[in-house]
């Protein structure tokens, strides 16, 4: 089988220093996106375990697989989770979830947890859509705009380019800066047209990195227009898979004239993290009502 350049690494992690059996609330968040699925487990509001993997063609299984993977090595089973919130594109297809909450609410809540209460604007750059979200100091959504109609400005678009140029998706960001001078952005908005434009540029003798740079800045520009329509208020943070691509992030920050907040947490799990945080609150409400 040919090398799949778009294929990013799947991973899981858990914190050995936390004892999930100590009696705290164990809440779960399952974010089934169109491209990737993330699962998060929190113990008493502390991040305990997470995983990120590719969404398969069957979303109930993707939710299960990712949660099982997050729990791998923890000794916990899905039945041990007190409350699970499903989110993302496939949120209604999380068989073990107690409730479903939109990914917009979850990303805002997750970003608030990751970067603190000063966050007001979140840009969630996902696999198949891109959302600009405004929130208050508690991570509650006040407004949002999204592009879910077009692959330009999404992770899927970047995967198409990685494949076209035979560059591993993880290397795209660094390589796009390995150039002599910043080229003008590609002029096509549409990924399909940008692909033919890129093929033409390669034919003209541009090297791969220069083409990546031109595409990354076009993508950054596209997302900036979405943000500007919504209006940006500081502090600003980028979540989702594209947040890991410095080729897009740094060009976007340059065009905005604004730096995004950094977080110690993995940006891709923001949605699942928000879901798990909602899970804890909902569980406590449920218990109090009993």
């Amino acid at each position: 089988m040919a090398k799949e350049f778009w294929r990013w690494k799947e991973y899981n992690w858990h914190d050995e220093n936390i004892d999930p059996r100590a009696g705290g609330v164990i809440s779960g968040g399952a974010d089934v996106g169109s491209v990737s699925s993330q699962a998060v487990v929190m113990v008493d509001g502390k991040l305990y375990a997470f995983s990120s993997m590719r969404t398969g063609s069957d979303s109930p299984n993707s939710a299960l697989d990712s949660m099982n993977w997050a729990l791998e090595g923890t000794g916990l089973k899905i039945e041990d989770l007190h409350y699970v919130v499903g989110t993302g594109y496939g949120r209604v297809n999380v068989p073990f979830a107690n409730r479903a909450i939109t990914e917009i609410a979850c990303h805002a809540r997750g970003a608030n947890f990751m970067c603190g209460p000063s966050v007001r604007t979140i840009l969630d750059m996902g696999g198949q859509d891109c959302k600009a979200i405004r929130c208050d100091n508690r991570g509650k959504v006040t407004n949002f705009l999204m592009n879910d109609k077009c692959a330009a400005g999404t992770g899927r678009g970047m995967e198409v380019f990685a494949d076209l140029l035979s560059v591993s998706i993880e290397d795209v960001g660094d390589l796009s800066f390995d150039i002599d001078e910043e080229p003008p952005p590609v002029s096509s908005t549409c990924v399909v047209f940008a692909k033919s434009e890129a093929a033409g540029l390669l034919r003209q003798g541009w090297d791969k990195n220069k083409v990546l740079a031109a595409y990354s800045s076009a993508m950054a520009h596209r997302v900036v227009t979405l943000l500007e329509r919504l209006g940006i208020e500081k502090e600003f943070v980028i979540t989702g898979g594209i947040a890991k691509n410095r080729g897009v992030v740094e060009r976007l920050e340059k065009e905005l004239g604004l730096k995004g907040l950094q977080s110690d947490y993995d940006t891709q799990i923001a949605g699942a993290l928000g879901a798990a945080l909602f899970g804890k609150v909902l569980y406590e409400k449920q218990q109090a009502g009993k």
């Binding site: 063609s57 077009c150 692959a151 899927r156 678009g157 549409c190 990924v191 399909v192």
Partner: peptide, 16 residues
């Protein structure tokens, strides 16, 4: 899907 890139995945899902 409206976008050709997304529609391609949709077509593949329909085939599956």
């Amino acid at each position: 899907a409206q976008c050709a890139v997304f529609a391609e995945s949709e077509v593949v899902s329909l085939l599956h």
